[in-house]
Design a protein around this nucleic acid. Sequence first.
DNA 1: ACGAAAATGATAATCATTCTCAAAGATAAA
DNA 2: TTTATCTTTGAGAATGATTATCATTTTCGT
Lengths: 141, 141
Amino acid sequence: MKLNQKDELLIVSSLRNAGVRVTKQRVALLYILDKAKDHPDAIELYKRASDVEPTISLATVYRTLSVLIEAKVVHRHSFEGGGARFEKAKRLHHDHIVDLNTGEVIEFNSEIIEKIQFEIAAEMGYELIHHKLELYCRKIN
Amino acid sequence: MKLNQKDELLIVSSLRNAGVRVTKQRVALLYILDKAKDHPDAIELYKRASDVEPTISLATVYRTLSVLIEAKVVHRHSFEGGGARFEKAKRLHHDHIVDLNTGEVIEFNSEIIEKIQFEIAAEMGYELIHHKLELYCRKIN
DNA sequence: ACGAAAATGATAATCATTCTCAAAGATAAA
DNA sequence: TTTATCTTTGAGAATGATTATCATTTTCGT
C-alpha cells in the first residue's frame, strides 16, 4: 500500500515537530499509528507498516516507538494479560475500558475523575504528571 | 529466618480458604507477601522467600503467584518502566501513586472516583469487574 | 498408611524487547 | 550539489522475564 502526498506531508511535519529525523521507516510507522483505530502491539504494527514500507524491520519498529514515546507522540499501554500496546497521542487525554470477554479496548474520558486525581495528588504533596485508568469490564446482557 | 506458629496458622488457613493445597513453599511465599510493605518483583520475592524456605525455586514463585492471583489473594501490577510487581490483596481496594523520581509506590483510595467509575462503566453498557488507577507524580518542593 | 492427583526443582524453551555493528541514509554547511 | 558528520537502519545475537517439561516428591481424602 502507498500513502498519498497529503498524508505524507502531515506525517513528515509531525516528525519534524517532534524534533526527530525523518526516515521512510518512521513515516510509515507513524502513518500506520495515525490510521489505527485500535491499540496494536509491536508485531502488529510491524506487519501493518511493512505493507507501506517493506524495508522496515521489527527492531526499527521498537526503536521508533521508543523515540516517539519519548517525544510524547505515542503512548504505551500494558493492559492485563498481554504485551505492550501502542496508540498515537490524541489532543484530549482519555482512559480505557477493557472488555474482559473480547479483549476490545474502548476509550472514554471523565473531567471529574481527572480533577479529583489532581486534588488527591496535591493533598499528598505530589504534582501529577500523568496517569493511567483502566476499567476491566464485561458487557451487560 | 523461621516463622512463628501463629503466623503459620494464619497463612495456612488463608491458603485453605483460597482453595489451594498447602505446601511449605506456598506458606513461605504468602508469608513474605503478607509481611511486605512494598511492591516487590518476582526475583525479590524469591530472595525473601528463600530466607524462610530455602527449597523454594524461582519457577515455584512464579507458579504460586499465578495460583494466588487466580484465587484473588494477590494482585499483579505493571507500573511503567519495569517488570511485574506483586502485593497481597487487602480488605479495601486501593490505587497507587508512583513517584517518578524515586520509583516509590504509595497507596491511596478515593470513594468518589470508585463511584464515578461504576457510573461510567454502566453508562457505556458495561459491568465494572475491577480497575487500575496509577498516578505518576513528582514530589512538590 | 495408601493411592490418586497435584506440586516441586532443575532446566530448557519461549516471548518480547534491546543491543551490536557494519552499512546506508539524513542533515547542515560550504 | 558535494561533502562531512552524525544518526538510523537491518540482521541477527543477546538479554531478561516468564512459562513449559518431566521425573520425583508431596499433599490429602479415604
